[in-house]
Design a protein around this nucleic acid. Structure first.
Lengths: 250, 250
DNA sequence: TTCGCCAGTAGAACAGTGTTCGTTAACGAA
DNA sequence: TTCGTTAACGAACACTGTTCTACTGGCGAA
């Protein structure tokens, strides 16, 4: 069960431009069953596999039937994204452990996205406003402010972290995709590294000499590094007189 | 003129899986004219506008003709991406001013991408390996190492910065898109802010009280903030005994 | 100068896409 | 029971990337 389903009054949380559930749904189809079918396809075939026809076929009907429950494919993808974000568990915020909690939360988010094909593609360029995404933002904002990061910086930081997590999840999805197609991702990255190493050293001294380092590390390690860099940078924005007392409100 | 065109021997720099220029091109079409036509469409209509048929029509021919010069649409998009990256001027690296130079370089890159529709979409999930992208990576690597950042961190940092810049450029492109469609982006973001403010304060205290800060700032300001956070985090990785002497090699 | 080759150019077609239109059929309310 | 609303759906439209096939037209060799 997702957070959205367990919410007592989810309607209040939805952006007003998501088409409201039409009253008196009568038969087999519903927004929930459509999203559930789409998630199954998403995990198996990625975003490109999620076509209106494919989802309809999964439900034993035609594509036109879906349009009674979902405005268009864009809206379906947004619903799909929020469904995936709903997989991330939210603990109780504890400002004293803000960096640890934020790291955990967004690492979980990164994994949830990575588990579900390249779903992260659909959110780049829009503001995530589904109920589950909103709860995640709220949680992060609370922790950042509690840590003493100025309001404006905290507000912008959400965007920065979100972009990094989404972009990295897309990168991961491609690796998973290669594996699904039977091609070894290691082999692909090996090819890339060999290309770097083969560049003319006169023009690319740094790239050729670093060759190995560029491809080293698991996806998890590389993601953790970037997230740590960002949080380090954010921590540097805490005013000196707050740095040692996280959690206090001024 | 792009960097690629002015390069004395660009062939050596191209990844070996880009299809080689077929020898003895005879008539009007060429890889260059195709990419140029695609760039025009890209600027006017975004990546979605760049279809093989549309590009062919721009050149007064049919889609099949393009396949003699370009392996497939993916390759055309990669060529397109590198063409855009070629718009970024590379200065002489000066390790003493590494943060300033990196900020400048990637801000220029961000602007070049933002000027050209949502071209950044095509690079997410792959490693940019066109000649212009490679030169940009080399430049950044040189500066980061010169600044005293450990090799492994420098190698991974390229990815982090690249992901952030691409994701942010996509965000910008959507704003530009809205403007092109005649819809006011300000109005869209105003709508988003109003939605945030309208959430139930009991469940979303931070989001509702921050409402304004979440939407404040120009695209440039917001991008600059994130880049600064990342560079701040990277600077924190410089070993203490190197922090005051950028540019020296150990 | 002539001939033959073949790279480059396309027209047509295939299988797929998102979306809309018009019709059918089933349910809730009266 | 009847009526009106509305979910469901088949067919169609205008697209997409890509491939097959035929057909040029210019160059190198004779």
């Amino acid at each position: 069960m997702t957070a959205a389903e367990s919410d007592p009054d989810p309607a209040r949380l939805e952006p007003p431009w998501w088409t409201p559930r039409k009253s008196g749904a009568r038969r087999s189809l519903s927004r929930e069953t459509i999203v559930a079918a789409a998630v199954r396809i998403l995990r198996a075939e990625g975003v490109d596999g999620v076509s209106m026809r494919r989802v309809a076929a999964e439900l034993g009907t035609g594509p036109a039937s879906l349009y009674a429950h979902v405005a268009n494919k864009d809206e379906l993808l947004e619903l799909l994204f929020d469904e995936v974000v709903g997989e991330v568990p939210l603990p109780e915020p504890d400002p004293a452990r803000w960096r640890e909690q934020i790291t955990r939360l967004w690492t979980d988010g990164h994994e949830a996205l990575s588990r579900n094909g390249d779903i992260a593609r659909v959110i780049l360029g829009r503001v995530p406003m589904g109920p589950n995404a909103m709860r995640m933002s709220e949680f992060t904002l609370t922790l950042l402010r509690g840590a003493g990061i100025p309001d404006q910086a905290a507000a912008w930081a959400i965007d920065v972290v979100g972009m990094y997590v989404s972009a990295s999840a897309i990168e991961n999805a491609v690796t998973v995709d290669l594996a699904r197609e039977g091609r070894d991702p290691e082999q692909y990255y090996g090819m890339v590294c060999r290309f770097f190493a083969s560049l003319p050293p006169e023009e690319f001294p740094a790239t050729t000499s670093l060759g190995d380092a560029l491809g080293r590390g698991s996806r998890e390690e590389r993601f953790a590094f970037g997230l740590d860099v960002i949080l380090r940078g954010l921590a540097a924005l805490v005013p000196a007189d707050r740095a040692d007392r996280p959690g206090e409100r001024p």
